[in-house]
Design a binder for these strands. Structure first.
Length: 1165
RNA sequence: GGGCGCGUAGUCUAGUGGUUAUGACGUCACCCUGACACGGUGAAGGCCGCCAGUUCGAAUCUGGCCGCGCCCA
């Protein structure tokens, strides 16, 4: 299958990008200081905020109006580069192309920082300088925001008392007590003895434990939302006396800030929305509420009047065997994501839930339960046994339904199906009869896998092989004629000697050539058997001679069949694998295989026939259900002829009619399909669909019929006996896609929703189920049952074992949902687990999910707080002029790319990719960057126009992002969506966003880079210089080129605010570094380091940087010095390397200068 | 025994021939900053399993080896 090429990624072709960029270019003389006026490009609808715009209340002149002397002029052309490259149009074009290729990768989740800097690298380093104010010169902002008495108290002092007033409590614990959480008026008051204690530390410990058990414990211990009136305080005796005053206690023991109910006023006194959201997402309450709402609205009913194309899928019916595991949750979440997206796209969708009776598996479980009560299942009368199973089913079916509902899966419960309901029974019988009439079902005596514990035949797929230790015995078979010696036969199963009919050697084995045709005496018996030659014998195994026990080994059976001179011996094992029969000495009768083995070994030894024994590791077949060693057994069973059924399926997959994702499983699929064996479908158990075959007591032949026949179709006899056996569960399950839609009736649902769209499942049942469904689909409906198969990985616990109900190592999803919420579980499952690989799931994944939801929730709260009542829902993307604020253009463009990526990922059945894209976008772009930048504008400090524009941009992006997130985390998004201005009744029915609605703006994305990079640099410097957080020291940047200067100068205020510096001054290229300033070398350019007294860390990091750059430079130079490289590499690559080398040399040079300075000034200090 | 897949910071993970190797969790440091401490900022942490080969150039392609997993017999 063709992988989507790069061109499919929905990005505009390079030329257009280049043109766009070019069009955005302003004449160089427009470069101006921050806040300066802007010439209006022709056709631009509205002017940018005027230079004389109103100032924010806390704004000082120096905030915005850099000294005219510091205006950033165009640097002189660089003679080495033959002109001012950054203004060269062709160069621009190249940036566009590179940007494009970078942005492509960006879609793979790379960070913006690493994405774009290479485009900027050529501009040379930005110099950043930053100097902390000495304490006495610290600016005390007049009229600063914040409650009086706060801003003027030095930060450190403000908090110190809290740490020192309680010597008995470690600061680490106090840390978690948020002063703002205390009711107003109590800020800064140290916690008292009765105050809640943070739970974090304790929860951490639990989190370190392995998943099994650990998770459950952790879930109980971890911080969790308080359920109104719910659990008692977790620390008895520490009840919080302030509780009544805190309506939104989170129950984790931490107090929350009391939030005033009713209208909220912003700092400026404007009325904000009164529909304030609670400070924390209360998963349990919100999730239950929306699940009810969705049900009430019938949102998940498959439309009855749908016309193709529709989107439909069947839920792989879980076994009633037990409850659902997190593995099911992963699978179901993937399906839910796909379905919900389609539903939002307006496609009629149907998701059919169901339940599988899981015959043998269920019977085993019920048997086990009865055993605990002292009841032997096999001894129960049939009716009673069935009643016991039915009781089990009811109990578990309810539990499974509860689990499915709690997770918020959008299945259509009105179409629920059970594989043992009347319709399913009818369909199963029809299928059997039809296959029988078509000659594809037959009854035959063949070697089958026999489970001696459950006393039933099982299919090849139900057999598990595992390596086990055993002892290999070398047994001498004496010559029958009494001549000395004999043949040495190696075996691990001496107890089957009684069933031997021959000894076989390889025909070309020279050692035994003379033996062929002679006869040997079977040890422990007096039977004489021939020595045969057969090509199946492995001459390298043991002595090269194999004993032939046709009833007890498949290979032996095949050898036997090739030698018609042999006759079939009587059985030596009964159905419980006990020795029996005329060939077995009476001393062994009734012994199990395990008991007989040592006994036979001893006897052989006593008889002097045991030559030697050696330890041996070999593969043992065990029954999947009972774990008993499987005995090959010749038995009469019903079979389905598979090769004929498989052929059309193989064709269909080859033709691409059914696509398998990830496609690498196709090979495995084909291999199995092409060597497929007949399927043994009869089971000697109670629980299942009875085989619709009726044996005539007169002639012994079966009459096969959907309804019980009146007479034998062979002899007309009336005395008929229903076949006591039942059918393999999978004989019903393999019909599921059409069975669930009403087949064999020609129902409307079949017309509308068949073939289904996609099948999502773990690949553990690829052969059991998926392949067989394809076969039945083509055979019975003539159509593919689904167009796409999507295999996901198996969840493993933290010990790497597969999660299964069998091992009991999966937490109950219901517990997970109760403790952390369905959305947290869903995101925690999908986000870290690529569909193609096996994944893991533990408490940390859950935390990640929950934390992300909290982030989204708080974004919603933030936005809500900045929207005046009556704000219109965002009907279309805000149309931003090219002169609009950079951050708005940027976030729209980023949103657009994210939307595209999510769409693409889901269309390719890769929900993890979609989740990653959304996670990265929400956390990094939207929350960490955009919102932080936009705060100024939203507070009205950058003028009304910008405030309005920013508001509508924020609302638009957030609202559309909620829609994109909805399939992943439906509840929290539904709740937030309703709190925000919106059109429509339910988010779950709201339209899926068209990414193209929002414009891409590569120019804004490029321009944003230096801004973000500058912020990062300054913050880094602050940290290195250990400048207290509440200081806003002055800072300087020496921009690298005019382009960077232009961007930076227009965003000075933003950088100042985010980096917490003031004022930020842009220096001219040649200007000297400000005195007593610290600087750093950073990736973007070079960086200067300053020398303050504590500069060891700085010097160290400079040296590290230098080392790194030097290594890189050497590498680059080596490459450039290589003839081969110059001759063979594309010119562009060579040029890039040259530029890079120059770049590096310069940067290293600057670092050296700094190190030198630092050395001298360090000495002075 | 055969087949398939996987080895990338302590852990999980992105990365289809030119990147200063991505992100998350964890770790360390600073920080309650008017959405969010379930938080913010910054930092440290990588012979991209090993060895050959192809190539001007390999985490990426090929072969071998080692380790792990799965499927099949």
């Amino acid at each position: 299958m063709a992988r989507p090429g790069r061109g499919d990624r929905g990005l505009p072709p390079p030329r257009r990008l280049g043109v766009r960029l070019g069009a955005r270019e302003r004449p160089a003389d427009e470069h101006r200081p921050a806040g300066g006026g802007s010439a209006r490009p022709p056709g631009a609808p509205r002017p940018r905020p005027a230079p004389g715009r109103p100032r924010g209340p806390d704004e000082r002149p120096s905030d915005r109006q850099p000294d005219p002397g510091l205006r950033v002029p165009r640097p002189p052309p660089d003679p080495r580069r033959g002109g001012d490259r950054s203004l060269d149009v062709r160069d621009r074009f190249r940036v566009g192309r590179r940007l494009q290729s970078r942005l492509r990768r960006r879609d793979d989740g790379r960070s913006a920082r690493n994405l774009l800097w290479p485009c900027l690298l050529r501009h040379r380093g930005v110099r950043l300088c930053l100097r902390p104010d000495p304490p006495d010169r610290r600016p005390v902002a007049p009229g600063r925001e914040g409650p009086p008495g706060r801003a003027d108290v030095p930060h450190r002092e403000r908090h110190r008392p809290r740490h020192h007033a309680r010597p008995g409590l470690r600061p680490g614990r106090l840390r978690a007590v948020h002063p703002r959480r205390a009711p107003r008026g109590r800020r800064g008051v140290p916690p008292r003895a009765g105050d809640p204690v943070p739970a974090g530390s304790k929860a951490r410990h639990a989190r370190d434990e392995p998943l099994r058990g650990g998770l459950v414990r952790d879930l109980r211990l971890g911080p969790r939302p308080h359920r109104g009136g719910g659990p008692a305080p977790r620390f008895p005796g520490r009840a919080d006396p302030r509780k009544p005053s805190r309506p939104h206690c989170d129950g984790s023991g931490r107090s929350r800030r009391a939030r005033p109910r009713g209208p909220v006023r912003s700092r400026e006194g404007r009325l904000l929305s009164s529909a304030a959201l609670p400070p924390r997402f209360e998963a349990r309450e919100v999730e239950a509420r929306w699940q009810t709402e969705w049900d009430r609205a019938g949102a998940f009913r498959g439309p009855d009047r749908a016309r193709p194309p529709t989107f439909s899928l069947v839920l792989p019916p879980p076994n009633v065997t037990g409850v659902l595991t997190l593995g099911h949750m992963l699978s179901d979440t993937v399906m839910d994501i796909l379905v919900r997206r389609q539903r939002m796209k307006g496609v009629p969708t149907l998701w059919v839930p169901g339940l599988d009776h899981a015959g043998l598996a269920t019977q085993v479980e019920v048997r086990r339960r009865l055993q605990k009560e002292g009841v032997v299942f096999e001894e129960l009368p049939r009716e009673e046994a069935l009643r016991a199973i039915e009781a089990w089913r009811e109990e578990h079916a309810a539990r499974i339904a509860e689990q499915t509902r709690a997770a918020g899966f959008s299945v259509d419960w009105t179409r629920f199906r059970y594989t043992m309901d009347a319709e399913s029974a009818r369909a199963t019988r029809e299928v059997f009869v039809r296959l029988y009439r078509d000659g594809l079902v037959y009854r035959g005596e063949r070697m089958v896998n026999w489970d001696p514990k459950l006393k039933t035949a099982i299919s090849d797929l139900e057999v598990q092989h595992a390596e086990e230790e055993a002892t290999l015995l070398y047994v001498r078979y004496a010559w029958a004629d009494g001549s000395p010696g004999g043949l040495e036969v190696a075996t691990v199963r001496p107890e089957t000697i009684f069933g031997d009919v021959a000894v076989a050697v390889h025909p070309e084995d020279a050692r035994h050539a003379a033996a062929v045709g002679r006869e040997v005496r079977v040890p422990l018996t007096d039977r004489i058997v021939p020595v045969l030659a057969d090509p199946a014998i492995d001459p390298t195994f043991g002595g090269g001679a194999l004993k032939v026990t046709p009833r007890n080994d498949l290979v032996d059976y095949e050898v036997f069949q090739r030698h018609p001179e042999l006759s079939m011996p009587p059985d030596i094992l009964d159905d419980g694998a006990h020795l029996t029969g005329p060939w077995v000495p009476t001393a062994y009768h009734g012994l199990s295989v395990e008991e007989a083995r040592p006994k036979a070994t001893e006897a052989l030894e006593a008889a002097g026939l045991l030559v030697r024994r050696e330890p041996y590791r070999h593969s043992v077949a065990r029954s999947e259900r009972s774990e008993a060693p499987v005995e090959p057994r010749i038995s009469t069973q019903w079979f389905v002829r598979m090769p004929g059924l498989a052929a059309p399926v193989v064709d269909a997959v080859r033709r691409g009619e059914i696509r398998i994702h990830p496609s690498r499983w196709e090979r495995t699929f084909f291999r199995w399909m092409e060597s497929i064996q007949d399927w043994c479908i009869s089971r000697q158990v109670l629980w299942g669909h009875r085989i619709p075959a009726y044996f005539c007591r007169a002639c012994g032949k079966p009459t096969v019929s959907v309804d019980p026949p009146a007479r034998c179709e062979h002899c007309g006899g009336r005395d008929l006996l229903e076949d006591p056996d039942v059918l393999d569960t999978w004989f019903t399950s393999w019909l599921w896609p059409f069975l669930a839609l009403g087949w064999p009736e020609r129902t409307a649902d079949l017309d509308r929703y068949y073939p289904t769209s996609v099948l999502v499942t773990g690949r553990d049942i690829m052969f059991f189920w998926v392949a067989r469904m394809m076969m039945s689909g083509y055979y019975f409906t003539g159509q593919r049952p689904f167009s796409d198969v999507c295999f996901h990985g198996m969840l493993r616990d933290e010990e790497g074992r597969r999660m299964s109900k069998h091992l009991g190592n999966s937490p109950d999803p219901l517990d997970v949902v109760r403790e952390r919420g369905a959305d947290a579980m869903r995101f925690g499952l999908v986000f870290p687990n690529p569909t193609s690989e096996d994944g893991s799931f533990g408490p940390t994944a859950l935390d990640g999910g929950r934390n992300f939801l909290t982030k989204v929730w708080n974004l919603g709260r933030f936005a809500l707080g900045h929207l005046p009542p009556g704000t219109e829902p965002p009907r279309r993307a805000p149309s931003l002029a090219p002169t609009s604020s950079l951050e708005n253009r940027w976030i729209l463009s980023r949103y657009r790319r994210t939307a595209e990526e999510v769409d693409r990922a889901l269309a390719a059945y890769e929900p993890t990719r979609g989740a990653s894209a959304l996670h990265a976008f929400v956390r990094h772009d939207l929350a960490d960057r955009y919102v932080e930048i936009a705060k100024d504008a939203l507070a009205g400090r950058r003028g009304e126009v910008l405030e309005r524009e920013t508001r509508s941009t924020l609302l638009y992006v957030l609202e559309r992002t909620l829609r994109l997130l909805h399939p992943f985390v439906p509840h929290v998004t539904e709740e937030l969506w309703h709190a925000l201005p919106h059109d429509g009744e339910l988010l779950t029915l709201a339209p899926w966003p068209d990414p193209a609605e929002a414009p891409t703006d590569p120019g804004a994305e490029v321009a944003m880079e230096p801004v973000l990079e500058a912020v990062r640099l300054l913050r880094n410097l602050r940290a290195e210089e250990r400048i207290p957080t509440d200081l806003r020291p002055p800072a300087w940047i020496r921009p690298a080129g005019p382009e960077v200067a232009r961007v930076l100068s227009s965003e000075v205020a933003t950088i100042e605010r985010l980096a917490r510096v003031r004022p930020l001054v842009l220096l001219e290229p040649g200007a000297p570094a400000p005195p007593r300033s610290g600087s750093r070398v950073v990736p973007l350019g070079e960086c200067y380091v300053e020398r303050t007294p504590a500069s060891a860390a700085e010097t160290e990091s400079l040296e590290r940087e230098r080392e790194k750059l030097t290594r890189l430079l050497e590498k680059t130079r080596a490459r450039l010095g290589d003839r081969g490289f110059r001759d063979h590499a594309p010119a562009e690559v060579v040029r890039e390397a040259e530029e890079k080398a120059k770049e590096l040399e310069e940067r290293i040079g600057r670092i050296d200068e700094h190190l030198k300075e630092s050395g001298s000034s360090g000495a002075n200090a």
